[in-house]
Design a protein around this nucleic acid. Structure first.
Lengths: 190, 190, 190, 190
DNA sequence: TATGAATGAGCTTTCATTCAT
DNA sequence: CATGAATGAAAGCTCATTCAT
């Protein structure tokens, strides 16, 4: 089944890009890491850019699934946020390479097509904002601009991830969700 | 005076890199923006990488100056942070191109030499941490891990800057320091 | 029957090569046009070059058949030429794609193996020359160098075909044999 | 002066392309023949295609100059044609490589931009046609379709050139203009 | 010091060909 | 025989850097 190779390429790309950065990674590097020929990469992706796009698209998909899943649970906003943060960080602790790629290569501006990548950040921030808006409507949190709040917390989250993965400091990564939740709690009324 | 050209090159680089990203910017692009010949760039910088290094070094220097200046004033931690945030954002509002470069290209990993750039972030976080440590010693703030706190706020600050500059949303940029200060205040005892 | 596929491939190749040129045609293009898999092409042809060789070989064979047939008829040189021109053009009017390939790709110089293709032109010119030589022996035509004559008329014929197919100008293609015959008649004594 | 290199590249390209054909010629081949680096080629031409375009454009320009010059002389059509043929062939005898490129690569169909090359043929045929039209108006020649006539002679001319250069047969090349003129004369009234 | 043409290593991408199924 | 995924050599092109002027 061809999807097996697509997965191998994705994983190899994540590995190599996390180490050398997107622009210092050659298609040959990815191919060697994936134990495939260069040509094979092009049977699954139209271009080098598309590989990065795919990585982000996949991660966005996963996050949206988590969010949909949690929404279905109909839990409190506070619990919602805690769950999401836990799962978000859990993924990164298990795959720090992926984390590094996601936080570092998000500014990719390869010409005009970087749709998925810019959108990855946008969408997550909007999802966070939606949660705050709803919480605000339910008077669960203090009256603070939900958009600013979302951007603020998203920045803090990614900043902590990046910092922890750059050292690397697995301890900080473990403590981060708890720490962030405590900060968030300050905006909750009860 | 030769330093005039060095400044022109730096400004041109900031301008172009903020628009196209470091790796999509050619030396020729910078030269044209600076209205100089390509060869002239090499009279002031040893390499393309070094130009980016210089931009970050210069910004780091400026921030350290602000910090030194504020430390000399011997003001309260709260006031200190407010002043620093105000000045940090003021620079970026006046020069959004510079802001974009600083927040986007910080992950530059050109082989081994990215000393200055990684350090820019590190140093600022450490400076922030120092402030929290001192404030903690003076019982000005609640008992929270100062390192985590510094990373958290630094991430939030840069996240807001990046978001505001990407849209671009000058309004958010103006409101950000006030908003961040309010968040910080929640952790202050008095 | 396997020859059916060989025919399908030939026709597909003629179609695609006439549109994109030999070097801009990929094996995949031919395969898709033939509604076959790429691998299948290699069951009938050793290489891409060989497909072009085959097209030319087939056309040469057809022309030689026509010539043999006409020779058997034992008609006058003038009639011979007229018949040959009529049949030659008739094929091309019915299959302009084939015509385009034959007149355009004749200069194929893929390294050393282009035997058949160079020979296609050579052989036709020689055939034409033979006719003139014979006519000269029979004092049917004026005393003009038969080789120059053959090259001259062959060039004129192919030039008209190419021009008519490039536009395309089916009217010119129809008038061409008659026009060429009238020019040829000038060299006949009677 | 940079134009010197442009000339060196053109000549090298003519040399190599005439030997290997356009598609079998690599930029490196041209560079080596020109004793320049590959990169230098791109300082003078945007692409490989553009080099071929330039070769044709230059030749067209030369032919148009010859035509303009002869028109200024106000000579008879017969003399006009003779002069033009003589000069056209003279160029090719002096530079057979150029001749081979011009007659062989004229069908270049590199995507959509082959403007100059298609036009080279078109323009020359039209120029020839104009001469016949004028001669017809002056009753210098018999009443024959000038367009068909132009295409016919152009094909014959190029066919002879190609044949003579392919062998190569310098004798045929020398005799060709005289031979062609005699054919043309048969259509002249006096 | 300023210039910009020359350089060539290095990159992405293509595609004819192979071969296991 | 048919298939089409895998292969990797090969090509066009870019661009940081050099250096003669």
């Amino acid at each position: 089944m061809g999807q097996e190779n697509k997965l191998k390429i994705r994983n190899a790309a994540v590995q190599v890009i996390s180490e050398k950065g997107f622009y210092n990674t050659r298609m040959l590097d990815i191919a060697e890491e994936a134990e495939l020929a260069v040509g094979t990469l092009y049977n699954y992706f139209k271009s080098k850019d598309e590989i990065l796009e795919y990585i982000f698209a996949k991660e966005m998909e996963r996050r949206m699934e988590i969010i949909a899943e949690l929404k279905a649970k109909d839990i409190s906003t506070k619990k919602f946020l805690k769950e999401f943060l836990d799962r978000h960080f859990e993924v990164l602790i298990r795959n720090p390479h992926l984390g590094r790629v996601v936080v570092r290569e998000k500014d990719f501006s390869g010409r005009e097509k970087s749709g998925n990548i810019q959108q990855f950040i946008e969408t997550l921030i909007e999802a966070l904002e939606d949660i705050f808006v709803e919480a605000l409507a339910n008077s669960e949190i203090k009256d603070i601009d939900p958009h600013l709040m979302a951007v603020f917390f998203f920045g803090a989250i990614h900043g902590m991830i990046e910092h922890a993965l750059t050292k690397p400091d697995i301890m900080m990564l473990k403590n981060a969700p708890q720490f962030i939740m405590e900060r968030i709690e300050h905006i909750f009324i009860n």
